[in-house]
Amino acid sequence: MGALRRIPHVGLIAVLAVVVIFTAAQSETFATDRNILNILGQISVNAVLAAGLTLLMTAGGMDFSMGSNVAVTAAVTAKLIAHGHATPLAVVVSLLLGTALGLVNGVVVTFTKVAPFVVTLATATLLDGVALLVHDGNTISIGQHMFTFGNEKVLGVPWLLIVAVVVLVATALVMRFTVFGRDAFAIGGNEHVARLSGINVTARKLTLYGLTGLLSGLGGVMLLARLGSSSPGSTAGLSLQLSVVAAVVIGGTSLAGGHGTVLGTALGLVLLGVVANALNLLDFSSNYQPVSVGAVLLIAAIANEMHKARAARH
């Protein structure tokens, strides 16, 4: 048992295994290649956002506006394409807009000392309203533009999944092998000590919030490509954000900063994706999905705090 406890994320892996085995026993279609790729494709947007949030939370930050950033950038991109602008131009505008929105959060958090939770939750509410204004009550369709990126595969793997894996791997490498990643851990561990040790905390925090904004813009492009349209009642917004936060916390990233792994986040994403897919295959009401996400997030947050307390004792 002692050896098992030393395996990274052993509890999360065990829960995932139980859910997979149970669902596979109840549904013949669950373990098929098509369904597995479907699950991974559906969590691709969440994965891109979760990668950025893992790095930010490791540094002690938080951004509850990423899902709303996705809603705005997807709406703006769709509107530009629908009005005849070139798709590459619309994508670049989306990425720049997402980055700018992330930097606004960073500036407010860094220079006003207001809690990131408060700032980004306020920004999320504001951006949800902006998305509604851009839509003006209408669904904006982009036709076949970006269809290949959103729905086609290369060597049997969806393009969106490839992008998500690249982002996750790049984030893991940054956190593990770069000065920037080590600085993020240091800032999350103790910002004051990090500042005294010569780390430019202000520049690092602005860069982190700008990066979460950039990945939000990329997530908006990916979501638009997958759906082919942007609507006022899209899957973006706070509901998307809560799923992303849940995946990151389930993966073991500390809410207080100083600890986080991309591998844990990836496992958290897969767990939530499998649970959602299982509920669908087993004919449960879709209303159970937010219930399951909330329950898993609460359990993970409690387990996170218990693990931190146990580590402090040892």
Rank of each mutant, 00 (worst) to 15 (best):
V201H: 08
V169P: 02
V179A: 12
A194F: 07
T178G: 11
R182K: 14
V193Q: 13
S197M: 13
A186Y: 09
V157S: 09
A170S: 12
G150K: 10
V201Q: 08
I187Y: 00
H192N: 14
I199F: 08
L155V: 11
E152H: 05
I199W: 05
R195E: 15
W159E: 01
V157G: 08
L196P: 04
R176H: 12
I162Y: 07
V165M: 01
G181A: 04
G181Q: 00
M175E: 03
G188P: 05
V174E: 07
V179C: 03
V193G: 10
K153D: 00
W159M: 10
V179G: 13
M175N: 01
V169L: 15
V179W: 07
L173N: 09
V166Q: 04
A194Q: 07
V174I: 13
S197W: 02
P158N: 02
I199Q: 06
L168D: 05
R195P: 03
G150R: 06
G181F: 09
N190S: 15
V163E: 08
L196E: 12
V167A: 01
A194N: 12
G189M: 06
F177S: 13
V163I: 15
R195S: 15
L173G: 06
P158Q: 08
T178R: 04
M175V: 08
I199S: 07
V179K: 13
A164H: 05
V169I: 15
A186L: 06
F180S: 10
F185M: 07
V166L: 11
V193P: 03
L155F: 15
H192G: 00
V179N: 10
L173D: 06
L173K: 09
V166K: 06
G189K: 08
V179H: 12
A172P: 00
T178F: 02
E152F: 08
L155K: 03
L161M: 11
F185T: 07
G189F: 08
D183Y: 11
A184Q: 11
A172V: 00
V174T: 13
E191K: 12
V167C: 09
F177V: 12
V167W: 06
N200C: 02
R195T: 12
